[in-house]
């Protein structure tokens, strides 16, 4: 439980600082291009890693494919087709729960 509160406290302070940094720091001192492009690529790398680890691994971190994978794939399809996060999440939950109920 301590981990939870430490995470919340530190993340709150860090998020505040990151949001404040850009508006304050500018005054001719812009970040160099390569730094900006690396920062822009952190999110896709991290999100993709979260997708696969949360979808395809079991408790101990080894590869495991179950109903989740089908649900998440459905969400990806819906997102690409309609572009609605809520529809995609509904598809994920519906497909996963449906397959488990079979």
């Amino acid at each position: 439980m301590t981990d939870v509160w430490v995470t919340i406290a530190v993340l709150a302070v860090a998020t505040f600082a990151i949001r404040a940094a850009g508006p304050i720091a500018v005054g001719g001192r812009e970040l160099p291009g390569p730094v900006l492009s690396v920062i822009a690529l952190v999110a896709p790398a991290l999100l993709a890693a979260l997708v696969v680890t949360q979808t395809l691994t079991g408790e101990s971190g080894d590869l495991m494919i179950d109903e989740r994978a089908a649900g998440v794939a459905a969400a990806g399809g819906v997102m690409a087709w309609r572009g609605s996060i809520l529809l995609a999440l509904t598809a994920a939950v519906g497909v996963t729960a449906g397959l488990r109920a079979l």
Partner: peptide, 27 residues
């Protein structure tokens, strides 16, 4: 996943890093 506070904080900060260039664009 049982990752502990440090891993959780780092993951959160990495995702929030995008606010740095967004803030620079806004400035």
């Amino acid at each position: 996943d049982g990752g502990g506070a440090i891993a959780a904080i780092v993951a959160g900060i990495l995702l929030n890093l995008r606010y740095a260039p967004m803030g620079i664009a806004l400035a």
